[in-house]
């Protein structure tokens, strides 16, 4: 393994090479700035859970198939397990912990409770982050559309009918 250091290119531009050991990474999460020392290989999911104690995003498959780690990066839903934390510098990360305002749950969170939209709850933070985004994207028109555009969030307990009910409730209230 060659020694890390700056790479001087033919154009003369210098790209700062960082790692492979821990490097200082600045992350903006739920509106707060954080500075942490992590290796470049650390996923956004691990940085959130293990370093920032934001354990809302869950590690289900860790390979991009279950959706339990869904967060927003610059306002778009994304999978934290397939995102390197260091690649989020300069971007705004939102997790389920960032949905409540002034101690009041987001209306989608309230709807999940009212509609009993979970059993074990493990997938729920990801479901909620997708569900809020779904309505903002305009993809909650009917149940078929909700099913299709929520298909990246797997619920092992199969609470799908109640999840759709919660989404409909927020859609119709908005």
């Amino acid at each position: 393994m060659s020694a890390p250091g700056p790479t001087v290119t033919q154009r003369g531009a210098v790209l700062a090479e960082r790692g492979p050991g821990p490097v200082r990474v600045r992350l903006s999460v739920n509106g707060a700035e954080h500075t942490l020392d992590i290796e470049p290989r650390v996923s956004l999911l691990d940085a959130l859970r293990e370093r920032l104690d934001l354990t809302g995003a869950k590690k289900g498959c860790d390979q991009g198939t279950c959706g339990a780690c869904t967060v927003w990066v610059d306002g778009r839903r994304a999978l934290a397990c397939l995102t390197l934390a260091i690649s989020c510098e300069g971007r705004e990360v939102t997790t389920v912990e960032g949905l409540a305002e002034e101690g009041e749950l987001h209306e989608m969170q309230r709807a999940f409770i009212a509609e009993d939209a979970f059993q074990c709850g493990y997938c729920t933070p990801g479901q909620i982050m997708s569900a809020v985004a779904l309505i903002e994207e305009g993809h909650a028109g009917d149940d078929a559309e909700i099913k299709e555009w929520m298909s990246g969030n797997i619920c092992r307990c199969a609470a799908y009918p109640n999840i759709r009910a919660a989404i409909r409730a927020v859609r119709d209230h908005t």
Partner: peptide
């Protein structure tokens, strides 16, 4: 495995 990371700002570089 460990990796190093560079963020590029122009395509040629």
């Amino acid at each position: 495995r460990p990796i190093t990371y560079v963020r590029a700002t122009d395509t040629a570089t």
